[in-house]
């Protein structure tokens, strides 16, 4: 038998669908933006859009917006460590002779 008294936040169909629409729009934008050449900014633009999409998925589809602060902190730390792992490797790669 199970009982629980924790609060559960239900994301409405409407909000879910809005997020879905936004994700589709952002996909269209990133495909469109790829048709133009911004030089080295190409990667920056693509990654910014991707990160915006990822943020929407994490916050709303994965309910992070409604979770306890602990969850937000540890998600942040994880991505921070990933960024460090990739970023610090470039102390080597960017300065190779």
């Amino acid at each position: 038998m199970t009982e629980h008294h924790e609060e559960h936040h239900t994301v409405t169909y409407k909000l879910n669908s809005i997020i879905w629409g936004l994700l589709l729009v952002l996909t269209a934008i990133t495909v469109a933006a790829a048709q133009f050449d911004f030089g080295f900014l190409n990667v920056v633009v693509a990654m910014t859009i991707a990160t915006t999409k990822a943020g929407l998925v994490i916050l709303f589809f994965m309910h992070l917006k409604y979770e306890k602060p602990l969850f937000k902190i540890i998600v942040f730390i994880t991505f921070l460590l990933l960024a460090i792992a990739i970023g610090f490797t470039f102390f080597d790669l960017a300065y190779r002779n």
């Binding site: 610090f88 102390f91 080597d92 790669l93 960017a94 300065y95 190779r96 002779n97």
Partner: peptide, 10 residues
């Protein structure tokens, strides 16, 4: 054989 900058930082 990694870069000297990396050696310094690490």
């Amino acid at each position: 054989g990694m870069s000297d900058t990396a050696v310094l930082v690490f």
